[in-house]
Design a binder for these strands. Structure first.
Ligand SMILES: [Mn+2]
Ligand SMILES: [Mn+2]
Ligand SMILES: [Mn+2]
Ligand SMILES: [Mn+2]
Lengths: 220, 220
DNA sequence: ATTTATTTTTAGCTATATCTAAAATAATTT
DNA sequence: AAATTATTTTAGATATAGCTAAAAATAAAT
């Protein structure tokens, strides 16, 4: 069975919103994520139900099927492999890759992805620190905490960002934060939850609770 | 103005069938090339006419506009650059690339193509020996030689015949040579100038100097 | 338990891109 | 010149994927 580009995009959105197929997802939330209208989502859910990639009971929400999760992970795998390609081989900045990967992820060729994976040396994480599922859909996730939840003097390494909008990524670039940076929490302001962070043992920066909430850290 | 994937594919087909926009093209021939029906072509021609990438007078044929030629060359450029990428970087065989390039050529990102071109070291020809238009649509046409003038081990693609009599064409058909065939000169006989030719990397055939003198090859 | 508000679905419309069958036009043959 | 054949276009379907507006179902508030 084959999925259309639109169906692949919906499945990917549902996969993310449902936390890997665990939770049910609201029609309105899918519409917001996809930037289209709830009526369009309802119609698509009916179609995805017919293709048995979700189990859909109208008005009562949906569950991803095993088949649906596999499809979603396959698309996510392709998206992230292309992101690695764009950054590592074509010198894209990490905030320039998303739009293009959003298109490339729909190219349909098993051989292509196999060869791309090999060419990139079987990377395990994309430029935003997100794990790349293997060809069977298995993901090696590393435990992460949100930076705003860390305590004073705790240390770790930035491994991912929740918001990968160009604006946010450019901001991080500007202040000198990046995936892989070693950080230490120097201070937390009680009043607004903002933090003072030491980056790579040399640069100090201040960030709001909001910003820190979008940064994921692997503690050490 | 933006073109859909279908429109890009039609323009590309028209460009090739019209010999670079020089000749008019028949609806039936476009349908054959695109593997769809003449009725579908008529409808698309109307749409392409409205977008002014062709000048279309119904029942009387079409002419590509300058704008149309630019669009076609842009798509051809992308197709051929991706083919080079697949062969040079991902180790695809030259006969495995077409289907994938047919998809990749529709990815829409000026930066991507710019970077890809640079990454591949600004190649001038694709793996099939076809020239890659530059970003302005300029093509460096490869000079043609008569097959009887080629040296041992040289390779190329049959692009034309000087003698287009039925007899000659029937002969070419019979021995398995055709416009577009990739050939390699395996041997040349000093005595009479006859040649041993490898066609499409599989079939060997012998031909006289006379016959070879009527075949034009684009070297690669 | 009603009423009100929110969420979700359906109905009906638009646009793209294909198809088949029929009609219109052009080209060829008699 | 008329008839026949071939080519091309139009008319009317179907499928995908979006929309708005209205209806239906569920959830929340009084
Ligand atoms: Mn996408
Ligand atoms: Mn990513
Ligand atoms: Mn194509
Ligand atoms: Mn080619």
């Amino acid at each position: 069975m084959d999925l259309t580009t639109a169906e692949e995009n919906y499945l990917k959105a549902i996969y993310h919103l449902s936390d890997g197929g665990k939770k049910s997802v609201a029609t309105n939330d899918i519409a917001a994520e996809m930037k289209n209208k709830p009526a369009s989502v309802s119609d698509m859910l009916r179609k995805l139900g017919e293709k048995e990639v979700i189990e859909y009971r109208k008005y009562y929400g949906l569950q991803m099927t095993e088949s649906g999760k596999r499809f979603a992970l396959q698309t996510i795998r392709k998206h992230r492999l292309w992101e690695v390609f764009l950054v590592e081989k074509l010198n894209f900045a990490w905030d320039e890759v998303h739009e293009v990967a959003e298109q490339l992820e729909h190219i349909n060729s098993a051989l292509l992805i196999q060869r791309l994976d090999s060419y990139l040396n079987y990377p395990k994480f994309d430029p935003h620190g997100d794990p790349i599922p293997d060809e069977f859909g298995d993901v090696r996730a590393r435990p992460r905490v949100h930076l705003n939840e860390m305590e004073i003097n705790q240390t770790g390494q930035i491994v991912a960002v929740k918001d990968s909008s160009a604006a946010f990524l450019r901001y991080l670039d500007k202040v000198g934060a990046y995936i892989g940076a070693r950080i230490k929490v120097l201070d937390k302001v009680e009043f607004d939850g903002s933090l003072e962070i030491l980056v790579d043992q040399k640069k100090t920066l201040f960030m709001s609770k909001d910003v820190a909430g979008n940064i994921l850290v692997q503690q050490s």
